[in-house]
Simulated assay, not measured.
Amino acid sequence: MKKSLLLLGTFFTLFFISCEGPTGPAGFNGRDGEDGFDGIQGQVFEVEDVDFNYIAADNLYETVLTFEDFTSFPVEANDAVLVYQYDRSIEFDNGSVVNDVWNLIPQSFFYDEGTVQFVPGHTTKDVEILITGNFDLSALDASITQNQIFRFVILPGNAAAAKMDKSNISSVMSSIGVTEADVLKASFK
């Protein structure tokens, strides 16, 4: 008798699991993507000749770059804006390949006088980069505050949450399908 009830219960369970109900309501229309682009959408642009202005009242240097001056790519509230500072170019031993070194900021530098830090912040309209420190920055060398080069990577919110090595700009660009040839380049001046 127990086997019969178990068999009958199994039959009814399978019967009800295999039933299909009515189709639910259609979802909302999303934003149209770029035709033929698969994967994570993002953009990379580079700005050279970036100069910082000293603000004596706060003992810091500041520069603000407005996104629309460099790209038509919309920046949403949940997007991440990664800021990389150009450090130098490295030529390998064979002399044939040169690679650029980009450092993700915030980044600290240590001098005899104290510590200096490059710190980014952004809204949907612009990105602000500050140079802060724990000593009087008014006499900071122009090689630190003038003619800097930065790369900005705009990652949509879903990509920003993805597990990728964000400290490595090559890895990030590869993840979003951007090559060196795709980088938009502009001058701040």
Rank of each mutant, 00 (worst) to 15 (best):
G39M: 04
F28C: 05
G33F: 12
F16V: 04
P22S: 08
T23D: 13
F12W: 02
G27S: 09
I17Q: 05
G30E: 07
F15H: 11
G30K: 04
T10F: 07
Q41P: 08
G27H: 06
G36I: 07
P25S: 15
G33C: 11
P25M: 13
D32Y: 15
I40T: 08
L6E: 02
D32I: 10
P25A: 15
G33I: 04
F37L: 06
C19A: 14
D35E: 15
I17P: 02
R31K: 15
T13F: 03
L6S: 00
N29C: 12
D35T: 14
G30V: 08
L7R: 00
G33P: 01
S18F: 13
G27C: 08
T23R: 10
S18D: 12
G24E: 10
F11K: 02
T23W: 10
G21R: 10
D35M: 15
G9K: 08
G36M: 05
A26V: 11
E20N: 11
C19Y: 14
G36W: 04
D38M: 06
L14R: 01
F12V: 01
T13H: 02
C19D: 14
G30C: 08
F28W: 07
G36K: 04
G24Q: 09
Q41K: 12
P22A: 08
S18R: 13
F37A: 06
G27V: 05
F15R: 12
L8M: 07
F15W: 13
L6A: 03
F28K: 05
E20S: 11
F16R: 03
A26T: 10
F37H: 11
D35W: 14
L6V: 05
F12N: 01
S18I: 09
G9L: 12
E34D: 15
L6Y: 02
I40E: 06
G27A: 09
L7G: 00
Q41I: 11
T23Q: 12
G36F: 04
G27M: 06
